[in-house]
Amino acid sequence: MRYLSLSGGLALVFSLVLLSGCGGRGKTDLAPAPRGRVDVPEWFLNTPTDPHHLYATATMTSRDLQVAIQKAQTAARTELAQQMEARLGNLTRQFQEEVGLRDDSELLQQFTSATKIVTDQTLVGSRADQREILSESGIYRAYVLMSLPIGQANQLLMQKIRENESLYTRFRATQAFEELNRELEALRE
């Protein structure tokens, strides 16, 4: 019906007035209106943790689905590399503190070069564990969860340290070695 009659219009206005009085008296609901649900995957908000893997999430957009995923994966891989670098940096600092290398800068240099080799090879076995693709007005949004096994990096680091006998002898006496070795043992189980 496109037009209301006069009586119909009055009835409608009267009804609205009546209905407006049905709520709580004098109280105004100041709560924000419920928003539309945001489809963010649960793993994006709560990144998994696992002693044998590093995890990183990223989200990117593009008009091309493959590009959206590729960009998100690249961003996540970059973060994984940074995590690995930070991890090895901590190990180096721990080694330095424990051994007291102020007088033996050559040994520290050897240790640093061993970790550098591992850092350069950080992304061995990286993979996109999960992905979620949403389409927003012709633009794809990709969420990805990438993982990187740390076992291979640990093995490579230990191998490089073992190649240097004097470094290995000093390293074996540290807590840093104990921790690294424990992780390697856990990997073998």
Partner: peptide, 11 residues
């Protein structure tokens, strides 16, 4: 290509 990157890549 993605497989190749997954097997090993330097960032």
């Amino acid at each position: 290509v993605e497989l190749a990157i997954g097997v090993g890549a330097r960032s």
